[in-house]
Design a protein around this nucleic acid. Structure first.
Lengths: 219, 219
DNA sequence: GTCACATATACAAAAAATTGAGTAGATGGG
DNA sequence: CCCATCTACTCAATTTTTTGTATATGTGAC
């Protein structure tokens, strides 16, 4: 039920079609929630069935018709209810960082390329956020802006996304530096990692147990 | 198969039990992946069946026995293979930011509390990361460290987590400021948001096409 | 001596997300 | 003129994740 809340919050900006929303939730755009079109269409349907959103069909001349959704009072109430609930801790799952963690035994070139790709994406997103910010501020200072507008939420989330991408850029640049130096140092072989040698004291719990045994490693 | 790779990467640090791993993957420790114990036990079992990890049972005196897993050559190969594949874009899903996005129509007190909670958590994590960093560096400069150690991956991911938490702290502090000022300004009622009035001129785009409803100002 | 909390797992149902199609007309560039 | 891309969805299968429950023992506080 988490996507649901993200949808409700997004619809505060005004009505939108599933397609519009799928743009907003696209990985390259979203700064706090991401979802595929399939998820959105399914969820919107369910939300409509529950009365959280209302749909109307907009007939278009040269395009398929579209269904445009807007919040209902019930939807607004559900959103309010959601904001009042304690928040769950955020789950971060960054595949790139898994690769970086394993870079020393993995394909350094490929990881380097993946970091570079992240850097490009972060720059593009930052540029977009900066444009959005300029549009929101419209020449005003932040303080003026906060005094004049009725909603500050969208600006605050935008600033979080902006800071995130800035950090992405800084980190990726530094990581590239470090990994490129590595390249020179250890020309590709003799990494020195072995499956056998990996053993270190795990956890610490393990009081002096008896001998190991256990199932034969089914290699 | 994404959790699998995170597990393989974590086991590079040496063998560990499911419980050890669940600690590492506990919301706070892992700075690039999060998973529940249930996920881990299931996945470890599957990985063992596929020969990516090998388990041995450690018998303990005053505790239940535990199974300790280590990477096999096949697991190491799978990890290498993974690093060579192109990375998928990261999905971010942050419930707190959804709440902040909706703060202007929601329960401001509750959102304020949630942001404060995030601030505390971020501070705790940053402190932990700083300790881990000091332990890794062991008095050396970064450059010395990079020259001497065989694995840089764990340090790089640690630095990303550290930067992330620093940004969390900065952002949360600013958000609290802004929201607290709000509190004074609009004493709790008359927020002025209505379901009907939700449609406003979004951004600039949306030329008057055939009955087009403009896309929402994308997230 | 018992209660809460930690260690160390396991099973299963339910919800959510991903993957991989497929439809069907429109616009734009070479 | 064709092919790629965009609009605007829909369906279905599978995988992953979440949530809830259960087990058994050990440790520390009251």
């Amino acid at each position: 039920m988490a996507l649901r809340n993200a949808l409700l919050a997004t619809l505060l900006d005004g009505e939108a079609s599933g397609y519009d929303l799928s743009k907003s939730f696209d990985a390259s755009v979203a700064n706090f929630w991401m979802a595929t079109p399939q998820q959105l269409y399914k969820e919107l349907e369910a939300m409509q069935a529950e009365g959280l959103v209302a749909a109307r069909v907009v007939e278009q001349d040269r395009r398929p018709n579209k269904r445009v959704y807007r919040l209902t009072e019930a939807g607004l109430a559900a959103l309010r209810e959601f904001t009042a609930q304690p928040a769950k801790v955020t789950a971060i799952r960054d595949e790139l960082l898994v690769k970086v963690q394993a870079v020393d035994v993995g394909d350094r070139e490929a990881v380097l390329a993946a970091v570079a790709q992240r850097l490009d994406l972060a720059r593009a997103k930052l540029a977009r956020y900066d444009r959005m910010r300029a549009r929101l501020l419209a020449g005003r200072t932040e303080e003026e802006y906060f005094d004049e507008v009725e909603r500050v939420g969208p600006y605050l989330t935008l600033m979080r996304g902006r800071a995130f991408e800035k950090e992405n850029i800084r980190w990726a640049q530094r990581a590239l530096e470090v990994l490129e130096v590595r390249e020179k140092r250890s020309g590709g072989e003799g990494r020195g990692y072995s499956v056998k040698g990996g053993a270190k004291l795990s956890g610490g719990g393990a009081a002096g147990g008896a001998g190991s045994v256990g199932p034969p490693p089914s290699l």
